[in-house]
Design a protein around this nucleic acid. Structure first.
Lengths: 110, 110
DNA sequence: ATTTAATATTGTAATATTACGATAAACGAT
DNA sequence: ATCGTTTATCGTAATATTACAATATTAAAT
C-alpha cells in the first residue's frame, strides 16, 4: 500500500493524471506562466522570479521536463527553458473531452 | 520545510493548483468519468466500479468533494454523488487562459 | 430493539512530495 | 590552470499522499 495503483486504470487516465500532477503545484504554474510571458529564459531568471531556493526551482523544472510540459536546451553553461506546446495541446484535448461531457449533462444532481 | 509555500504565490495560482491536484490521480479521474456516464450514483456503485477498497474510494471522494469537483447528497443511508459543473467551468476558464497563451506564442524555443 | 446495509472515520504502514544546504559538474573567461 | 557563473544532484528533514483493515456512524428494514 501507499503507491498509486496505476495498473488498474486506463492509459489515458494515467497519462492525464501524470500531466495534471506535474502542473498541480503553484510554483510550477508560476514557472509555466512566466515562461509564457518571456517565451524563453535561462534557469537563473526563474530562480530570481520565484521565492524558492535554486535547488527547489531546479527540482520543479525537472518535474515539468519529465512531464514534457517544458523543454530545456543547454546553452554554454546555462540552460535555456521554454514551453513545450505539444504536451499542452495534448492536455487541452484530454481536458476538452471532460469539459464537453460536462456541458452535455442535463441533470444537475439527485 | 516540506510544506508548499502557498503564501508566496497568487490566489489564482493556488486555486488552480488545488483543483488540478484534486484531479491529478487516475482513480479520481476514473470517478469523474464514471459520474459523467451515469450522471448520478451512490458511493457503492463507484466502489464496485473501481479496483480499490471502500475506504480508499471514500477518501478519494472526500478529496473531490473538498475541491468542489463533485457533490454528495445524503439519500437515506446512502450518499448520492454527482459532478459539480461550476468548479469544472472555473477550471476550464483558468486552463483556457493558459491554452490561449500557448497558442499566441510564436517562438518555438531557443 | 435488532439486524442489515451504506458510508465515513480512525489508525497506520508504505511511499511520495516539498524544500533547502552542501556539493558536484560544466562551461566560459581570465 | 584557476576562478566565477550557472545548473544539477545528493542527502536529508518535514510533510503529504495513498491504501486498507478495523471500527464507527447512520438510517432503513424487520
Amino acid at each position: 500500500m501507499g503507491a498509486t495503483k496505476t495498473d488498474h486504470f486506463t492509459d489515458k487516465q494515467n497519462e492525464l493524471a501524470i500531466i495534471l500532477k506535474a502542473l498541480a503545484h503553484p510554483a510550477r504554474i508560476a514557472i509555466v506562466e512566466y515562461l509564457l510571458t518571456v517565451n524563453t529564459c535561462i534557469c537563473g531568471d526563474i530562480v530570481n522570479e520565484l521565492p524558492l531556493a535554486q535547488p527547489t526551482v531546479s527540482q520543479h523544472l525537472k518535474e515539468l521536463k519529465n512531464a514534457e510540459l517544458i523543454q530545456g536546451n543547454i546553452e554554454g553553461n546555462a540552460v535555456c527553458y521554454c514551453i513545450n506546446p505539444k504536451t499542452f495541446k495534448k492536455l487541452e484535448k484530454l481536458m476538452d473531452v471532460l469539459f464537453k461531457s460536462i456541458k452535455k449533462q442535463k441533470t444537475t444532481c439527485c
